[in-house]
Amino acid sequence: MTRSVAIADIATYRPAKRVPAEHFTQFAESDELSQNVMFRSPAFRHHAADGETSADMIDTAARTLVERHGDDYLDDVDVVLTHSQLPEVPVRGCVGEVAHRLGLRPTTVLDVHNGGCAAFVHMIEIAGALLQAGGGRKALLGLAQNSAGQIFTQEQVRGKAQAAIPGDGAAVATLTLGDDGNPVLGTVSRSFGEYSADMTAVAQPERKYWEAGPGQIHVGFTEAKIAKVLARGNRMVPEVALDVAHQIGVRPADLDLFITNQPNRIFLRNWRDALELPEERHPDTFDECGNLFAVGIPMTLDAAIDEGRVHSGAVVMMSAFAHAGDFAAAGAIRWNGRS
């Protein structure tokens, strides 16, 4: 019999450098996209310190779990998965370094590069499958968003409308098998490879990201691409959430919390309207943290728990889409408390 998968606990990290929207105003240039709804700036975001790596941030978040539960809390971790928005080394991620720094000896380590903003749910699926297949006792998931203070503060990028939206941060979660913890009720993933090429990194003058040159890399947005992303995102996030709700037999209107990625306010509003949920049941950390990409869902969930907004027995739906719409995933858990 397949044993159920549960989230045991979750912890997050926000870098100390808290950056107000006014920081970007001083660099604002005449960007033709400045009035686009995609780029209405959050009040604040956090930037990683100079030299602060993905492994640093994930390690700091994981130490919170150790402080909360005891020095031996991670001793039975056999599976470690990490996701970094901006890997420091092109040919590898940070999973090995994270495992070493935490003193772990896992049987499986995996850098999950794909998944984008939906990576948290994607990693729950992957780690759960590994545990259920006999691959270990506990899994540690680590996610880092570290591109805000590196990509979007570059001299040629910081004046663009896109620069003020992202923030940095990290999150970790532990997964276990059995009836304890916060059971994963269901998940759904959808791949849309036909949209993969719509996400581009560009520079002026044009160059490949690994080539030397005067142009600084940033996201290649155009009005046409933004229109496509808005249409896809508006559709995909509710669709996968509704699929999971149907799978677990819960009416969308009966969900206790709906937690999504948070690219901008317009998406947040449209997604909760699609599920006919009031704003208080769709928490976000956008105005404090900006767009955290893959870290957005666990950051908001952790904040909601700390604020007492997640009662025991609550059904929490998590849903996100990635990149320009090439992937979407949703998952539901029943929250019973930190364990």
Rank of each mutant, 00 (worst) to 15 (best):
P205N: 07
P278D: 14
G233I: 01
I226H: 04
G103L: 06
D256N: 10
M299I: 13
T12P: 01
R232Q: 06
G116S: 08
L301T: 07
A253M: 07
S84P: 07
H100W: 11
R105M: 13
G249I: 07
V184E: 00
M299E: 10
V19W: 02
A173V: 04
E155T: 12
A28R: 14
K228H: 09
G167K: 03
V310R: 02
E194Q: 10
V240P: 09
E67N: 14
I248Q: 05
R232W: 06
Q156G: 04
D56L: 04
T222F: 11
E67D: 14
A320P: 12
L175C: 03
D284W: 04
S147L: 09
C289Y: 03
D254P: 03
F27P: 10
E239L: 14
A127I: 10
T107W: 12
F286V: 09
F327R: 00
F44K: 06
A21C: 08
S147K: 05
G220T: 05
T108H: 12
M123S: 04
A6I: 13
S4G: 15
T285C: 13
A294W: 00
L242E: 15
N182M: 03
G115T: 00
D306T: 15
H23R: 07
R265Y: 12
Y13S: 02
D31K: 05
S312M: 12
M1D: 15
R105Y: 12
E155V: 10
N264R: 03
E194S: 10
E279C: 13
S189T: 04
M236Y: 13
R63L: 11
E288L: 08
A224I: 10
W210G: 11
S196C: 07
G93K: 01
L140W: 02
E239K: 13
H246R: 15
I248S: 07
V77S: 08
R281S: 13
V244G: 02
L131A: 03
